[in-house]
Amino acid sequence: MIPPLAFFVLAAVLFVLGVVAFFVKKDLLTQFMAVEVMLNAGNLAFLALTAGPGRANAQAIVLFVIAVAAAEAVVGLSVIVLVFRRRKSIRTDELRDLKG
């Protein structure tokens, strides 16, 4: 039987990779994908740290996280599409209107 700690370590590594991807990548779409990676790492940690009957509760919460992630993806992607239509670019280093 695999200890829960192994799953937690994997979740931590995935979350950190998501953070790195978010800061290193410069197109909005990939940065958005990095956010999804972080959400999934959170889900994994949730499932790893519950046991027995609590696992059912964790699954219910994972379902809600996935539902919120789906809603976020839909709205976020439509915002990105709008940005692209207006600016013809989704690269964050080219969108610098707020820079003083």
């Binding site: 695999i2 499932l47 696992r55 964790a58 699954q59």
Partner: peptide
């Protein structure tokens, strides 16, 4: 697959 390993078939 990892969720499946964690006995969470629904997730």
């Amino acid at each position: 697959g990892l969720f499946g390993l964690l006995d969470s078939p629904f997730a």
